[in-house]
Design a protein around this nucleic acid. Structure first.
Length: 261
DNA sequence: ATGTCACTTTACAAGTGA
């Protein structure tokens, strides 16, 4: 069964051993990476090729950076998207892998509600939704996956009252996610989880947030109906978030594993 | 609710972004 993993690695250089282990563990067909923080010339394409994956990178230093790995050669590669309000940041990479169109997304964080970065985030999500809505056919297989830096509703937040109106959970951001879905996309994680809390995908590094369960679901896989109608499972690899599992330190995000038939 | 991490710089500590 086809499988896609999306993972904000928070530095591919730091996370490479864990990524290689993840490729072995889940054997995905496609991987969307975010916050690679590595320029294209230094992308570890050879190591990944030895592991059986072709790769395309839209990299940047010291922040941002997205990539797509695939068993088959990605074609029709596009770096960025039209009318990006943050055109100098490497946040969106799209490609075709066989019959599947794939978009790896690392949304603007926004810092705090009211900060200029927050206003940029809203404009950026608007522009992304405009592009997705105009450039893709909802009847064709498409997965838009990555770190959207938005918890779509209260089920995606460990403490909705604490997060009410805060950056990552505010209503204007959530409205932007609904705009994206209106382009003909289904939130696969929510579809798989039903009306339950989580599963969370990000926990702050500070204050032992992971251990205390203080998480958010901000890493999303959105897909058109040809994929969504064949959805088998969406699982968060929480084990990957633990310091004790794998080589080196964990990312603050856990990988999301999507399988369809 | 800020107890960490990754990255940068005329680098041996402090600022930044998250």
């Amino acid at each position: 069964m086809p499988r896609l993993v999306t993972w904000n690695v928070n530095s591919l250089r730091q996370r490479l051993p864990r990524l290689l282990a993840l490729l072995e563990r889940h054997a995905p067909d496609v991987v969307c990476l975010q916050e690679t923080k590595v320029v294209d010339e230094e992308f570890p394409a050879t190591v990944l090729a030895d592991a059986g994956y072709r790769s395309v990178s839209f990299g940047q230093r010291p922040f941002n950076g997205v990539a797509i790995l695939a068993r088959e050669e990605p074609t029709e590669v596009l770096r960025g998207f039209p009318r990006d309000p943050a055109p100098d940041s490497a946040r969106v990479l799209s490609a075709r892998v066989a019959d599947l169109r794939v978009v790896s997304v690392y949304a603007v964080n926004g810092k705090r509600v009211g900060d200029p970065a927050y206003e940029l985030k809203l404009a950026w999500l608007d522009a992304l939704a405009d592009w997705i809505g105009s450039a893709f056919d909802p009847d064709e297989p498409l997965i838009v996956a990555g770190d959207f830096n938005v918890a779509p509703d209260d089920r995606d937040v460990h403490d909705p009252e604490l997060w009410r109106g805060q950056n990552l959970a505010s209503e204007p951001e959530r409205e932007r996610i609904r705009r994206l879905l209106a382009a003909g996309l289904v939130d696969l994680g929510r579809r798989a989880a039903g009306d339950t809390t989580g599963p969370f995908t990000w926990w702050d590094y500070r204050m032992g947030a992971f251990h205390r369960g203080w998480g958010l679901r901000i890493d999303l896989a959105l897909a058109t109906r040809p994929i969504a109608d064949r959805l088998v499972s969406v699982e968060v690899d929480r084990n990957e978030r633990k310091p004790t599992s794998g080589e080196g330190k964990p990312s603050d995000h856990a990988p999301v594993v999507v399988t369809w038939s």
